[in-house]
C-alpha cells in the first residue's frame, strides 16, 4: 500500500519535472547510450547481480562514515528503504531496460534522498565508491580480455551517469520546490487590497518595492478597482523604509494606472525622512495627492466619497470625524 502511494508520488513528480519518453531518450543521448551498449552490459550482468549485497553495503558503509549523510543513516526506516531501493537499482541497472519504469524507480530513490536531506555531493561520493568496486570486480574477472571488461564497464557507466543526472535533478527540483512555495506565499501576503468602505480601497505597502513586486501590486490593485468598482484608493506607504527614484517611479506608475481606470489615489504615510529625501533627490511627486497619515487619508477619501462618520453617543465622546 505504502509502495503504491510512493509510486503514484513518483509518477506525479515525473510529470512535474517533464520526464516523458522523449525526455528520457534525450537523456540517454546526452550520456551517449546506444543499442550496442546493451550486450556489453549483459556480459557483466551476473557479476553484478551475484554481489548486489556487497555493493550496497559498500555504498552505505561509505555514507555512514560521513557526517554529511547522517540524516539518511540515522533514520532506520529511511535507511532500510534506501538499501532496498539501491539493491533493486543495481539489479535493474544491468537488465538492459531503461524506460519509464526504470526512471520511475530512480525518481523514487531520489525523492527519498531529498527527504533525508542528502546533498548531491555526498551522494556522488558514495556512488563513485560503488562504481569503483563494481569496476575492480569486473576487471578482476575478465583479466584475460581487459579491453572487453573495460568496454562493458564503460557501458555500465553511461547508465550510471544517466542515473546521476536523474538523481541530481530530483534533489535540485525538490530544493527549488521549497523556494517556489516560499516565493508564492510571500507574493500572496505582500499585496493585499482591502475594501474598507463601499467604493473605497486600502492598499497597505510594507517592505521593499522592486520592479517585480510593483508590477504585482499594480495588477492586483487594478483588478480590485474593477471588481469592487472603487472610486478612491488610499495607498499607505508607512511600511516602506526607503524611497529612491526607482521606487517613486513605481508608485507613480501605480497611481497613474489606477487613475486611468477612473480611481482617485491618495498616498499616505510619507515619513519626515522619506519626504526630506524625496525633496533632496528632486523627485517630482507633485502629481500625487498626499496626506500625512493613514487617518488623514481615510478622512480625505470619505470626504471625496461623501461619507460622514458620526459617533453614536450624543452627549460624550470625541467630536465626529470629518465634520
Amino acid at each position: 500500500m505504502a509502495d503504491e502511494i510512493q509510486q503514484a508520488a513518483s509518477k506525479a513528480l515525473m510529470r512535474e519535472m517533464g520526464l516523458d519518453e522523449a525526455n528520457i531518450e534525450r537523456r540517454k543521448k546526452i550520456v551517449g547510450f546506444e543499442a550496442s551498449d546493451v550486450p556489453r552490459i549483459a556480459a557483466i550482468r551476473d557479476l553484478v547481480t551475484q554481489h548486489t549485497d556487497d555493493y550496497v553495503t559498500t555504498f552505505f558503509n561509505h555514507l555512514s562514515g560521513l557526517d554529511d549523510a547522517r540524516s539518511l543513516i540515522a533514520s532506520r526506516a529511511i535507511a532500510e528503504r534506501a538499501r532496498q531501493l539501491k539493491r533493486e537499482h543495481l539489479v535493474a541497472m544491468v537488465q538492459g531496460e531503461y524506460g519509464m519504469k526504470y526512471v520511475e524507480q530512480r525518481i523514487e530513490l531520489g525523492t527519498l534522498y531529498a527527504k533525508a536531506g542528502l546533498d548531491a555531493r555526498v551522494f556522488l561520493g558514495a556512488f563513485h565508491q560503488l562504481l569503483k568496486h563494481i569496476g575492480s570486480a569486473v576487471m578482476k574477472q575478465v583479466d584475460r580480455k581487459p579491453l572487453d571488461g573495460f568496454e562493458s564497464f564503460m557501458s555500465l557507466k553511461k547508465i550510471a551517469f544517466f542515473d546521476i543526472g536523474l538523481i541530481v535533478d530530483v534533489l535540485v527540483f525538490e530544493r527549488e520546490r521549497v523556494i517556489r512555495q516560499q516565493q508564492e506565499s510571500i507574493r500572496e501576503l505582500s499585496t493585499p487590497v482591502l475594501q474598507i468602505r463601499e467604493r473605497l480601497l486600502l492598499l497597505p505597502i510594507i517592505g521593499v518595492i522592486d520592479t517585480q513586486r510593483a508590477r504585482l501590486i499594480t495588477e492586483s490593485l487594478l483588478r480590485s478597482i474593477r471588481a469592487n468598482r472603487a472610486k478612491v484608493v488610499v495607498m499607505d506607504i508607512t511600511g516602506v523604509a526607503t524611497i529612491d527614484s526607482k521606487v517613486s517611479n513605481h508608485l507613480l506608475q501605480t497611481v497613474t494606472a489606477a487613475r486611468l481606470m477612473g480611481a482617485h489615489v491618495i498616498v499616505t504615510g510619507l515619513s519626515a525622512e522619506v519626504a526630506q529625501s524625496l525633496v533632496a533627490l528632486g523627485i517630482e511627486l507633485s502629481k500625487l495627492n498626499t496626506v500625512g497619515d493613514l487617518q488623514g487619508g481615510l478622512e480625505e477619501a470619505e470626504r471625496i466619497l461623501g461619507y460622514r462618520v458620526l459617533t453614536t453617543a450624543t452627549d460624550a465622546g470625541p467630536a465626529p470625524e470629518g465634520s
Binding site: R215, T218, E219, L222, R223, T256, A257, L260
Partner: peptide, 13 residues
C-alpha cells in the same frame, strides 16, 4: 471610460 486593467498597466509601462 472603461480602460481595462491590462490596458492601463500597459499604458503606464
Amino acid at each position: 471610460v472603461g480602460i481595462q486593467p491590462d490596458v492601463a498597466f500597459a499604458m503606464v509601462q
